[in-house]
């Protein structure tokens, strides 16, 4: 019995490490969606497509950089630059051409516009990048592995996944929170999040806020994808599976709650990795079980505030 515990205690430790790194990626996937949803009240189904496009762009950029003979470290800024590029191009394009025309329409229509966009972008990805899995692992190889002791054994972990991903996720979390609380633009965004009518009434230009937010959200989606590209192959269909996961995170977190998204991502990441060790059959349903469980106890999500019902 004591032996069993000793063994599983160690395993639990490993599960924790895996859980944190996978939570980091889940957070990066969901944070942009959370932000956009919080401010604009649009559940952007095309978020998954932006994620995929970010991943494809970063992989292409990495391969291109390598073909130019640039040093391996160049693949790291390439990731960030690709994400910024995707955000800067697609964000304003989608917001001004599509979303702006439907802000006054039924939320269902807004959602379906992004659903239509998702379908279109699925094929656009295929037209641009084909169907063969793409990947560029320069960054992972550059950072190498870290040996974590496990009893008498050692378990090598990717430094990229173990340190860099959680580091970036934490930076984004702290940076975004500070930006929203401390800067004028951030406060304006929060004001719009809390009460759109009141914000407009006191002269806040919500058009500009929406454009900014959506572009930022698109860049974050692309960053999530770009960060995944060194460890995972990008294939057609990755957008569809990504978006359901981010939906689960956003609903668990509570509408537009960045810190909620971080905690939800942590719960899902840890839940999944613990499941792989102790009940692998449940790994797939973990995000949904967590979401249902949280919403049962807190119908507005972890950090959601109960909205008074319309009279």
């Amino acid at each position: 019995m004591a032996d069993w515990f000793a063994d599983n205690g160690l395993l639990l430790g490993l599960a924790l490490l895996d859980g944190i790194s996978s939570a980091a990626l889940i957070f990066m996937v969901a944070v942009g969606l959370t932000l956009v949803f919080g401010v604009m009240r649009i559940l952007n189904v095309a978020h998954g497509s932006l994620y995929a496009i970010g991943a494809y762009t970063a992989a292409s950029a990495g391969i291109f950089a390598a073909s130019l003979g640039l040093p391996a470290w160049a693949s790291l800024p390439a990731i960030v630059l690709s994400a910024a590029l995707v955000g800067a191009v697609t964000g304003p394009l989608i917001e001004t051409l599509l979303l702006r025309r439907i802000y006054d329409k039924d939320p269902v229509l807004q959602l379906l516009v992004t659903f239509a966009l998702f379908m279109i972008l699925e094929d656009v990805q295929k037209l641009i990048w084909g169907v063969q899995p793409m990947q560029n692992d320069t960054a992972t190889r550059l950072l190498g592995t870290i040996d974590v002791p496990f009893g008498a054994d050692v378990i090598p972990f990717n430094a990229y996944q173990l340190l860099l991903l959680p580091g970036v996720a934490l930076t984004v979390l702290v940076g975004l929170t500070l930006f929203l609380r401390r800067t004028l633009t951030g406060r304006v965004i929060i004001a719009v999040t809390e009460d759109r009518e009141a914000a407009t009434a006191i002269g806040i230009d919500s058009t500009r806020v929406f454009l900014l937010t959506f572009t930022f959200g698109a860049a974050l989606a692309a960053l999530g994808g770009a960060l995944s590209s060194p460890t995972a192959s990008v294939v057609p269909g990755v957008g569809a599976s990504t978006i359901v996961l981010s939906f689960a995170v956003v609903a668990t977190a509570g509408l537009g709650r960045i810190e909620g998204a971080a905690i939800a991502a942590l719960m899902i990441g840890l839940g999944r990795s613990i499941a792989v060790y102790f009940a692998p059959e449940f790994e797939v349903v973990v995000p949904y079980i967590i979401m249902v469980a949280v919403l049962l106890v807190r119908p507005q999500g972890l950090f959601g505030v109960a909205v008074t019902r319309r009279v």
Partner: peptide, 24 residues
Amino acid sequence: VAELFPRFGSTDFSTEITRLLALR
């Protein structure tokens, strides 16, 4: 010693790999 069936279309097998590294 282990039967792992990760989701179809998974993009990360870190946890499975950690477990296999430990199981040898």
